[in-house]
C-alpha cells in the first residue's frame, strides 16, 4: 500500500531534520558556519583534531549546543509519535500525549521534588527533578489503568475519563504544593513551562533509550493500528487482538511521553499539531504517519528551541513558545480545512 510518494516525503523530512540540526548548531552567540559544524562533527567521529577552526568551537558544539539540540529533537519526535498513537488508539482526533494525565503526574512529581528541596530535605542527586517527574508519570499511568480496568475492553471513553479524573486530583495536589512553596513558587512554574537549558549527553542518551525502541515497537504494530480504526469488533474479526495491542501501545506511548516530560517539562501542542498536519498531507496510514511524525516533530521542536535560544533577546519557556506559535497556526489550518470541506 505504501507508494513512492510517502517514502519521498519521509526522505525529505529526514533531510530537513539533518539540515536543521546542523544549522541550529551553528546559531547562537558564537556564529559557527554549517561547514565548520560538519567539520567538527566529522573530526570527532574520525578522531582527529580539526586544524583551522577556532579552538573554542568544538567545545561549544559538542558540549553545549549539540546535547540540547538533540534532546529537543528527540523530545519533539517522541511527543509527536506518542500523540499520533494516542489519537489512533482512542479513535479520537483530539487526543494528545497528555490525554491520560501523564503530564499532570510528571508535574506533580517534579513539584514534589522542588518543594522537598525548598523545605531543606536533601534529595540525593540521582533522585533529581527528572527522576521524580518520571516516577510521577509512571504512577499516574498505573493509576489510570487500574481505574479503567473495570472495563475489560479498555474503551476510549473509560480511558479518557479515568485520565481526566486522575489529572484533576493531581492538579489539586500541584496547586497545594505551589501554595506551600509561597514566594518560591516561580521555580515550580518555570519547570512546568518547559525548557531545554543545560541538557547534557546523559539526557540525550536516556531519552533515546526510550524513544527509539518505542518508535520501533509502534512501527511493528502500525498495520494493526490501521485495522483498529475499523472498530473493536471488526478488528477482532480481522485477526487483530485489539485489546492487547491497545494496552501495549498505550503503555509504550505513555513511557515515551513520560521520559520526554521528565527531561524537558510540559511542552504542549507538538503532540496534537504534528500528527494532524501530517495526516492531512499523508493520509491516516500509520506505517507512513508514525515515522513522518517523529521526523516532523523533531524538526519543529528543535526549530522552536533554536528560536528561543538564538534569536530572541532573552529565552522564553519553550512550552509557552510552542503553544503561542502552534495555537494560531492550528486555528488557521483548521479553519481552512473546514472551509474547504463546506465549499
Amino acid at each position: 500500500m505504501i507508494g513512492s510518494k510517502p517514502l519521498f516525503f519521509i526522505a525529505v523530512l529526514f533531510l530537513i531534520l539533518c539540515a536543521s540540526i546542523i544549522l541550529a548548531t551553528g546559531m547562537g552567540f558564537l556564529k559557527i558556519t554549517a561547514l565548520e559544524v560538519i567539520e567538527i562533527l566529522g573530526s570527532r567521529l574520525l578522531g582527529h583534531d580539526p586544524s583551522a577552526i577556532n579552538p573554542t568551537f568544538p567545545f561549544v558544539v559538542m558540549e553545549v549546543r549539540l546535547p540540547r539540540i538533540l534532546t529537543s529533537a528527540l523530545v519533539g519526535g517522541g511527543l509527536a509519535v506518542a500523540g499520533a498513537v494516542f489519537q489512533a488508539i482512542l479513535l479520537n482526533p483530539l487526543a494528545d500525549p497528555y490525554t491520560l494525565g501523564i503530564s499532570s503526574g510528571a508535574a506533580f512529581g517534579a513539584s514534589l521534588a522542588i518543594i522537598l528541596t525548598l523545605f531543606g530535605i536533601i534529595i540525593p542527586p540521582w533522585l533529581s527533578i527528572p527522576v521524580f517527574a518520571f516516577l510521577g508519570a509512571m504512577a499516574t499511568l498505573v493509576g489510570v489503568f487500574s481505574l479503567a480496568s473495570t472495563d475489560n475492553q479498555l474503551s476510549s471513553n473509560t480511558l479518557i475519563l479515568s485520565g481526566v479524573i486522575i489529572a484533576a486530583i493531581l492538579s489539586a495536589g500541584i496547586g497545594f504544593i505551589k501554595y506551600l512553596a509561597d514566594e518560591q513558587v516561580s521555580i515550580i512554574i518555570f519547570w512546568l513551562m518547559g525548557s531545554f537549558v543545560g541538557r547534557t549527553w546523559a539526557d540525550v542518551l536516556t531519552t533515546s533509550l526510550v524513544v527509539f525502541p518505542g518508535l520501533l515497537f509502534m512501527l511493528y504494530f502500525a498495520r494493526d493500528l490501521n485495522i483498529m480504526a475499523l472498530g473493536e469488533r471488526t478488528a477482532n474479526s480481522l485477526g487483530v487482538d485489539s485489546s492487547r495491542v491497545k494496552k501495549m501501545l498505550l503503555i509504550c506511548a505513555s513511557l515515551i511521553t513520560a521520559i520526554c516530560v521528565s527531561v524537558s517539562g510540559i511542552i504542549g501542542f507538538i503532540g496534537l499539531i504534528i500528527p494532524h498536519l501530517l495526516r492531512m498531507v499523508l493520509g491516516p496510514d500509520n506505517r507512513v504517519l508514525l515515522p513522518a511524525c517523529f521526523l516532523g516533530g523533531a524538526s519543529l521542536l528543535l526549530g522552536a528551541d533554536t528560536i528561543t535560544r538564538a534569536w530572541l533577546p532573552s529565552e522564553i519557556p519553550i512550552g509557552v513558545l510552542t503553544s503561542l506559535i502552534g495555537g494560531p497556526f492550528f486555528c488557521y489550518i483548521f479553519r481552512k480545512k473546514q472551509l474547504a470541506k463546506n465549499s
Binding site: 500500500m1 498495520r223 490501521n226 480504526a229 475499523l230 472498530g231 485477526g239 487483530v240 491516516p284
Partner: peptide, 26 residues
C-alpha cells in the same frame, strides 16, 4: 469467518479502497 457489524463509524480519512483492502489483512 468474516463479520459485518451492525454499527460502523470511522473518523480517519481512509479511502474506500484502503478500507476494502483492510479485509485482506489476515
Amino acid at each position: 469467518i468474516a463479520l459485518v457489524p451492525q454499527h460502523f463509524s470511522m473518523d480517519f480519512e481512509y479511502s474506500v479502497k484502503d478500507i476494502v483492502l483492510m479485509g485482506r489483512h489476515p
